[in-house]
Design a protein around this nucleic acid. Structure first.
Length: 756
DNA sequence: CCAGTACTTAGGTTG
DNA sequence: TAAGTACTGG
């Protein structure tokens, strides 16, 4: 094949092996994606049906890029038949097809982290556990780790190790929470991210016929970023590949940075045990970076003990030394880096997109944003709070989700009283208790209150009824209307659009625009789907993968020439001409949390290696000697990683230090005209003196208030009573105030004055 | 039920 | 510091 001539000898060897197990250890920038794409094209050129190829990537974006490159080589029609995507999205697809086998509905909901933690929080409360000890975060991580190691809730309770750990941290009942959590997810027709892997394993192991079906389908399996797979993923791949053993894994142990998510570097080392007759290919020539960058990166990664031996080298120029910049504070760091970008840009006639600022934690982005904005440099922040996690988006999506899956508990809780419709906490709590007792969903209770002895006063009851009817009416249109038509109707008819439209603050306007943006995205989805005859176009089809999307998948044309700001984790697999690694300080990078064990510290070092090797032309390291942390100004020391780099590749002139080992001792910041940071303004403790103004308005006797009566409220002004519900003394009035809209008020509190 | 206020606590990376 | 939650008065 002609295109194979683009490859070097090692790349070519790997690309042309058609059958049998193989592993490619690919150093940073050595063209591993190229090998994967060429290999897939080569397979298809050699008569292998695209339908029989499964390619698993780490991000959706990587899958899309690879697909389009393959399409360029062998044509779109073939390329689109390959099953290519992230573990999560591919397995979600399989689980939706085989849903019956595991007792789930095919339109099951995927709970994101927020949903999961919300459910855990509710369970902890219901079980009467101390929420200071049983924090959702901690429990979520425990459950996640268990699932990634294929430990079910039942197994967990029997697992001496896990239970012992929980007992020693004072949380002996995590296992019970896990069990209840699984029950509730199942009842809600929901899976969390880890379930997508866990349940796939279950499916394949309990149903040999299904396993055989997918083994036969996926004759050829390719896995990218193999160093970041966890045990659950490993086992799925192994099972699927067991029949033909046409498996190709690609990875770099030096870039393994996801052990917190259960990634297991051992998977690479174990490959040869599982497939003794495998072929190993090493890609060691780097095409991306300058010699200085490659050599500096090599000099630091060799400090790690755990690694597969390889020597990454390059024929590229030496390039510039790695510049180290010292700043006085985090704010100054922002300014200095922004200025440096500004100067480099005009000097070398570069574009914004040639630059990236990489940091360890999302919280560091602020000072760079401010500084870049001042210089009018446009940037894009990746990660952080993604579009799909914003409150207003999650609210609307919750309506969509509840429409397709009435049992989705987290969605129900989110929207049952948003926009305000007078169904409060007490009502929901009652319904939850009944649902738990009778092992049904909250929706069931709301839908058939009399059947389940759910007694509420008539007012609340009619509100619940109209809510149920509304959701059902959405449901009835699910298969008639297009995704966009229904989405728009829901946005309007739920009252969300109206609610956001009344908020004219800047944030409120942004929220309104975000909703519009989501509707646009759905409209686009509707259009592309309807062009395609055999794909579906309903709202539930849109929802399928929404939970699995990230911001990187949302890139628009106008984002293409912006400076990238992101965490190093998010930068994995990317490259930029000019890379700034910022906040290179002890306790920040490496993170303080990683300093306890060698393996964690080594992972931080690999992270540093990943950061450095993103740079093509020039890398710059930056640290500040002081920065704000939780409102306190604390002093910082330069990271050990700077010390560990071979000095010959560094330019230390901007640190005021001649030698790197006195970086921190030198306390003059010559080119800094920064003032001492302003002291934290003393908190004003002016306590409001409560109003002693006596009211000369008599509290109204509640029976005088009737529907239709005009009333006056201290804060909301004039209004008209449009509904009354509840029994004395808890009578609740629905009042419409022209100035501030419809409100529900408890008569015993709201001192309504009757007018006329 | 609503809205404003006091208080607490966050440690980090993600599909 | 900042965000998110619990509390409280109307």
């Amino acid at each position: 094949m002609k295109y194979l001539e683009d490859l070097n000898a090692a790349q070519k060897e790997a690309a042309i092996q058609i059958s049998g197990p193989m592993m490619v250890i690919a150093g940073a920038g050595s063209g591993k994606t190229k090998v994967l794409t060429y290999r897939i094209s080569h397979l298809i050129d050699n008569g292998i049906d695209a339908f029989n190829i499964l390619a698993l990537t780490f991000t959706n974006k990587a899958a899309q890029e690879m697909k389009s490159r393959i399409a360029e080589m062998i044509g779109d029609n073939e390329a689109k038949n390959i099953w290519m995507g992230t573990f999560h999205s591919i397995f979600a697809r399989i689980l939706r097809t085989e849903h019956e086998k595991i007792g789930y509905p095919n339109n099951f909901t995927i709970y994101d982290t927020q949903d999961s933690k919300g459910l855990i929080k509710a369970i902890v409360k219901e079980m009467g556990l101390d929420d200071k000890l049983y924090k959702p975060n901690i429990i979520y991580n425990r459950i996640s780790a268990a699932k990634n190691n294929l430990i079910s809730a039942g197994d967990y309770l029997k697992n001496a190790g896990a239970m012992g750990e929980d007992r020693s941290t004072g949380r002996p009942r995590i296992g019970e929470v896990y069990l209840e959590y699984q029950k509730r997810c199942f009842k809600a027709g929901a899976m969390d991210f880890d379930d997508l892997l866990f349940k796939t394993n279950l499916l394949l192991h309990q149903h040999p016929d299904i396993l055989l079906k997918y083994q036969n389908k996926f004759n050829y399996i390719l896995v990218d970023e193999y160093q970041d797979t966890n045990y659950a993923q490993y086992l799925i791949i192994k099972s699927l590949a067991a029949r033909f053993e046409n498996i190709c894994v690609v990875g770099d142990d030096a870039q393994s940075i996801y052990s917190f998510r259960g990634a297991n570097i051992q998977n690479i080392l174990n490959f040869k045990k599982d497939y003794p007759d495998y072929n190993l290919y090493k890609l060691e020539q780097n095409y991306r970076s300058t010699k200085n960058i490659v050599n500096a990166a090599n000099s630091i990664i060799t400090i790690n003990k755990d690694q597969i031996k390889k020597k990454v080298w390059t024929e590229n120029n030496s390039g510039e030394l790695i510049k180290v910049i010292k700043s006085f504070s985090d704010n100054e760091e922002g300014k200095v880096i922004a200025n440096d970008i500004f100067n480099s840009k005009s000097h070398h006639h570069l574009k914004n997109k040639d630059f990236a600022i990489l940091y360890r934690t999302n919280a560091q982005s602020r000072s760079f944003e401010e500084a870049l904005r001042k210089l009018n440099l446009s940037y894009k922040i990746y990660g952080g709070l993604s579009f799909y996690q914003r409150k207003e988006i999650k609210d609307l999506l919750a309506y969509f989700r509840l429409t397709t899956n009435h049992n989705d508990e987290e969605s129900l809780k989110r929207i049952i009283n948003y926009p305000k419709r007078g169904i409060g906490k007490t009502t929901l709590e009652k319904a939850t208790i009944i649902a738990n007792q009778q092992n049904i969903s909250i929706w069931d209770v709301l839908e058939k209150p009399e059947q389940f002895n759910f007694s509420v006063n008539s007012g609340t009851r009619s509100k619940i009824e109209s809510f149920v009817i509304k959701i059902k009416s959405f449901r009835s249109k699910l298969n008639i209307s297009s995704a966009y038509e229904l989405a728009e109707e829901i946005a309007k008819s739920s009252g969300i659009l109206h609610d956001l439209n009344t908020d004219k603050s800047p944030e409120g306007i942004v929220r309104y625009e975000n909703i519009q943006e989501l509707l646009n995205a759905i409209s686009e989805f509707s259009e592309t789907q309807s062009k395609n005859e055999n794909t579906d176009n309903s709202l539930s089809d849109f929802l399928i993968d929404v939970a699995l999307l990230t911001d990187a998948d949302n890139e628009t044309e106008e984002d293409k020439d912006k400076i990238s700001l992101m965490t190093i984790h998010a930068a994995k697999g990317l490259e930029f001409s000019y890379v700034y690694i910022v906040g290179v300080e002890e306790n920040l990078f490496p993170s303080q949390l990683s300093l306890n064990t060698r393996s964690e510290l080594e992972e931080e070092r690999r992270l540093f290696y990943v950061a450095l090797t993103r740079a093509k032309t020039k890398a710059t390291l930056s640290y500040a000697v002081s920065r704000y942390k939780w409102g306190n100004f604390v002093s910082c020391e330069p990271s050990r990683f700077i010390e560990e780099l071979d000095e010959q590749y560094l330019d230390l002139s901007l640190t005021g230090a001649v030698k790197k080992n006195n970086l921190s001792l030198n306390n003059t910041w010559s080119n800094s005209n920064q003032k001492t940071p302003s002291k934290i303004s003393a908190k004003r403790n002016l306590k409001k003196i409560s109003s002693i103004e006596s009211s000369n308005i008599k509290p109204t006797i509640s029976h005088e208030i009737k529907i239709g009566v005009e009333v006056k409220h201290d804060r909301f002004g004039k209004g008209k009573v449009i509904d009354l519900s509840g029994e004395s003394p808890n009578i609740k009035a629905t009042v419409f105030f022209p100035s501030s809209g419809q409100k529900q008020l408890l008569l015993k509190f709201a001192k309504l004055q009757i007018l006329n």
